[in-house]
Simulated assay, not measured.
Amino acid sequence: MGQQTNNGFGLTKLRVAAGLMLVAGVAVLSSGQTWAQAQLPPGFYSFAPSKQELPVGQLSSQAQADLNAALVAYRAKDFSASLPYLDLPSSEGSIQANWLLAHMFRKGLGVSADQVTAFKHYNRVAEDYVDSRSEVSGNERYFVLDSLTRMANYLRTGHKKAGVRKNVSKALHYYQTAASAGHAGAQYGFGLMYLNGEGVARDRSYGMRWLGTAAQKRYAPAAALLGDIYNESGDKVRALVWYKIAADTAGASLNRRIVKKTNAVVSEISQKKLGEANNLYTRWSSRFPVRTRQAQN
């Protein structure tokens, strides 16, 4: 059936959310369990950090002053001015300084992109955290979880420019650590490894469950992949719902792909099915609204 102008799907910028089947407004797994009823495998939290405090007075006064100056320049988007101030706090083990250096070298902010240096600084954060098993909170918690996830991304496939060899067991370890602490990108990567059977026995339903968890946090790549899975299985209604969810927070490149796939699905189904998809999307979105934009690249 041709695309309808009032169906809510044929938009340049779509609005969509993550892949769950909804029954009376309750998220349900393919097995019939709700998310709350589903059990994690034994030892799932084996990599969770113990409850310890970071050392008081971790940075010298000069290192703290440099970090403050770096943050002022960074927030003003003067990245080249920010970089020199990060050297001392980084050398003293500042989580934030090392994450900022990793991020800036990975993205080429104020400096030529250098994946080797980016990996080195992500590794400092990740390895120090895993070795010390320190408890962190606030912004530092985000920096640690994101570093673990970035490390897993490098290790899962290997990264030639960073000089990193593929190590799926370590990637799985890092994804699991960050996923169990709630990082959406790690939950996506962890689910993907189970979907594909990378370093673990392939478990499609368990992998999809983690994609759904990431999608609840409005992590667009997870929702888009769920859309692809349902689309390929022939469930066009749920495919549309997931594409619509993904487009709510997708970046420009991913959104272009979602628009193309959504329009193709819309052309294949009836107006009644489009209405069902719209209703499911509305109900899902009311339960999992967009609150903060996830870092999705």
Rank of each mutant, 00 (worst) to 15 (best):
Q4M: 01
N7I: 07
G8K: 15
T12E: 14
R15V: 02
V16K: 10
A17M: 12
L22K: 01
G25W: 13
A27V: 05
V28S: 04
T34H: 07
Q39C: 10
F44D: 11
K51N: 05
K51R: 09
V56M: 10
L59Y: 15
Q62V: 13
V72R: 02
D78W: 05
S82M: 06
L86T: 08
S91K: 13
G93K: 14
S94G: 09
L100P: 00
L100F: 09
L101N: 09
M104I: 08
K107I: 01
G108S: 04
A113C: 07
A113M: 04
T117M: 09
F119N: 09
Y122C: 06
A126N: 09
Y129H: 11
G138T: 04
Y142Q: 08
V144R: 09
D146P: 00
S147A: 15
S147C: 01
R150I: 13
K161R: 02
K161Q: 08
N167F: 07
K170L: 13
H173Q: 04
Y174D: 03
Y175P: 13
T177E: 12
A179F: 01
G185I: 07
Q187T: 08
F190K: 04
Y194H: 01
Y194K: 06
G207H: 02
G207T: 03
T213D: 14
A220K: 04
L225N: 05
I229D: 00
N231C: 00
S233N: 08
K236Q: 06
Y243Q: 08
K244L: 11
K244R: 03
T249G: 01
R257E: 01
R257N: 02
R257W: 00
K260A: 02
T262G: 10
A264E: 14
I269W: 03
S270N: 09
S270F: 07
L274E: 10
N279D: 13
N279A: 12
L280Q: 14
T282D: 15
S285Q: 06
F288A: 09
F288H: 09
R291D: 10
